[in-house]
Nucleic acid binder design. Structure first.
Length: 264
DNA sequence: ATGGTGGCACCGCCA
């Protein structure tokens, strides 16, 4: 008997503003684990009750107004922990656990604002800290998924205008190199594995631009990265563009992957 | 052409 598993990531841009969409999406897609970023709510205000009433388990790590992460799942997660835990001042950007033997690491990587800013330096350092975090806690042989808004488009085909966006913090050579350094540890881009060379596959569109979907003015910055045992177990991956056409959509949409795992 | 929208804060900040 093999074990089927559907795992997804979604930058909700406020879990409270997007709660109905998230719950109906979970109900209709048969997803086992959903990693959420930008929950934008402190833990005491997190909407646990409606999520539990929908039959889901949830863990969360947040603050007022900005950032924040959560994981919704059909069965409870084990070994839940938050933060990078490297002794440096931390923000609510990382939550992790174990789902049926799969290590799940959900992150909201700092955006970086401007390539010339201290915020971009902080982003690059955060990615470096995350690489050290993976080395400390796991091995490339661990069945592990790193999901989230990673705020990095890995390749030219992952942005709508690579020439114009060359210095943008989400497509900057230094940001892509920092992401690559983490992947060199032993992680594979699951979506790209199933869609090599496929252009116009985006997970984020800026609210501030008009007709973004029609113009295909997007970015692929939300990712499902897998260690080798998980990558080999993946059977499909896709981006749910339909969900970006909801009534009050987030500026991001759901990225999903299916896995067919050997028995534990 | 150097804007625009959205969310949450609290009357600006962040994306």
């Amino acid at each position: 008997m093999t074990q089927y598993c559907r795992i997804a990531t979604f930058n909700a841009n406020s879990i409270r503003a997007r709660l109905e969409q998230v719950l109906s999406w979970m109900a209709t897609t048969e997803t086992d684990v959903l990693c959420v970023q930008e929950t934008k709510v402190q833990d005491s205000e997190f909407p646990v009750d409606p999520i539990r009433e929908a039959g889901l388990s949830v863990v969360y790590h947040g603050q007022k107004a900005h950032a924040g992460v959560a994981i919704l799942s059909r069965e409870p997660l084990e070994q839940v922990d938050t933060g990078l835990r490297d002794g440096e001042p931390d923000e609510p950007r990382l939550i992790r656990g174990v789902y049926r033997g799969i290590a799940i690491v959900n992150t909201y990587v700092p955006q970086g604002r401007d390539a010339d800013s201290e915020y971009f330096q902080y982003k690059l350092r955060w990615l470096e800290r995350l690489r050290a975090f993976f080395e400390r806690h796991y091995t490339p042989k661990t069945p592990l998924l790193w999901l989230g808004d990673l705020n990095v488009a890995p390749e030219p085909i992952d942005v709508y205008d690579p020439k114009r966006l060359a210095n943008h913090v989400d497509y900057h050579p230094a940001a892509r190199a920092a992401l690559q350094r983490i992947c060199d540890w032993g992680l594979v881009d699951v979506f790209r594995r199933h869609h090599p060379g496929e252009a116009h596959q985006y997970s984020y569109w800026d609210y501030r631009m008009r007709n973004v979907l029609e113009r295909r003015a997007g970015w692929r910055v939300d990712h499902i990265m897998a260690t080798r045992p998980m990558a080999e177990a993946s059977t499909a991956a896709w981006i749910d563009v339909q969900a970006r056409m909801a009534d009050r959509p987030s500026d991001h949409t759901f990225v999903v992957a299916d896995f067919d795992l050997p028995p534990r």
